[in-house]
Design a protein around this nucleic acid. Structure first.
Lengths: 141, 141
DNA sequence: CCGTATAGCTATACAATATAGCTATTCATC
DNA sequence: GATGAATAGCTATATTGTATAGCTATACGG
């Protein structure tokens, strides 16, 4: 057996777990023809009708250069509607079709999140989640 | 303030924390002209002289199609040496230059891992790491 | 009014990963 | 020992997420 010099590294463990979760998410979303980044954008717009794409990008940590084609694709598919709020910003709203697909998206996401939670022993669950969310909030800089 | 519908999702938190850690790692490795995936390959070869690239790929979850150009680049740079162990496999070993850069790699990695650990409150640290490593091991399927 | 910041966009590049398909070698089994 | 299956390594190609540079037009503070 070969030795794994990375097995004690929390950063590497985070990377592997995250990659596995993302792979499952991508697979679950594929039947909706949605990519992970698109699904999060839909969820944020659904929860905040009228947000601008720059606000969405800031919340999700997606650069504006990458938001542009992403939002354009969602608009081209008729999932979201863009309405000018001033001369340079557009408020984003889900269309009826967008709402339907967002409901399905949420169920895909929720199922994966449940699977993940189920794999965390109940004893450590609270501590694990507390640290994880704290780290995630921390990262917002 | 806009509402974040993802703030309660552990899977999404994992993704954000992992992305932030990876970004810092990529930045730290950039002065060695190494990419994250290459650095892990070097560390594994350093800890297991003579491993084949397929063994490294299996350990790290890198597909053989992606290992080929990755190992080729490390060999082209003179960081690793390939020696035939049989007609189709090659044992990988660090060259002197590879050993030097791997030492530096380890110090970059160790510093980031220390930073990460330092951000986990001592009270929850053991539980957090236990769950994280269990999830990472789990994922190996 | 004017300088600066911001919104949105294009073009481009890169890293990691994925699939398909290929050759050649090894190995188990008949 | 021959043969079929599995394996090692490789190429080509595509996708996803992300990064940088640079652009236009609008909004806003002094």
């Amino acid at each position: 057996m070969i030795h794994d010099p990375l097995e004690d590294l929390p950063g590497y463990a985070l990377r592997r777990v995250s990659a596995a979760v993302m792979a499952k998410l991508a697979e679950g979303l594929s039947r909706l023809d949605l990519r992970p980044a698109e699904s999060t954008v839909l969820l944020v717009i659904g929860a905040n009708p009228g947000v601008t794409q720059s606000e969405v990008g800031r919340l999700l940590g997606i650069a504006s250069a990458n938001m542009a084609p992403l939002v354009a694709r969602l608009a081209d598919r008729g999932l979201i509607v863009r309405e000018a709020v001033d001369g340079r910003s557009q408020g984003l709203t889900l269309s009826d079709g967008g709402r339907r697909i967002t409901v399905k998206t949420r169920s895909v996401v929720d199922e994966l999140e449940s699977d993940l939670l189920a794999r965390i022993p109940a004893v450590e669950r609270a501590a694990f989640l507390k640290v994880l969310f704290a780290l995630a909030r921390d990262q917002d800089d």
